[in-house]
């Protein structure tokens, strides 16, 4: 298993930080892609951040009232090794299958 860290994303409009209002997931929980993770408040509005990916929550950063800067760690997921890359997926390793058989008369000269 591998860990992937997700930082507080740029929330737009030049905002550089957000305050955690409420975590909607907790460590140990399996989350799906786009599932709401946390409610944060900026100087503009309160928003729910959707999960960028599926995975098991390992830890979260900051409790209600804590400020987090854009780019600082927000949450860490645990994912299977073969999906830890951000681009692409590695097909599951399967036992080799064949349709072709070999035939040869091997003279050992």
């Amino acid at each position: 298993m591998a860990e992937i860290s997700f930082p507080l994303p740029d929330l737009g409009e030049g905002l550089i930080e957000a305050t955690v209002l409420e975590w909607l997931v907790s460590p140990g929980e399996q989350v799906e892609r786009n599932q709401p993770l946390v409610e944060v408040e900026t100087t503009k509005s309160a928003v729910e951040l959707p999960s960028p990916q599926a995975g098991k929550v390992v830890r979260t950063y900051g409790g209600p009232g804590d400020k987090i800067n854009v780019g600082e760690p927000l949450i860490v997921f645990e994912v299977p090794d073969n999906t830890a890359g951000i681009v692409g997926t590695v097909p599951k390793e399967e036992a080799p299958k064949r349709r072709v058989r070999l035939s040869a008369v091997l003279d050992e000269d």
Binding site: P96, K97, R98, R99, V100, R101, L102, S103, A104
Partner: peptide, 10 residues
């Protein structure tokens, strides 16, 4: 893939 390599060997 495995079969194309086996064909080459054959």
């Amino acid at each position: 893939n495995i079969d194309r390599i086996l064909f080459g060997i054959q």
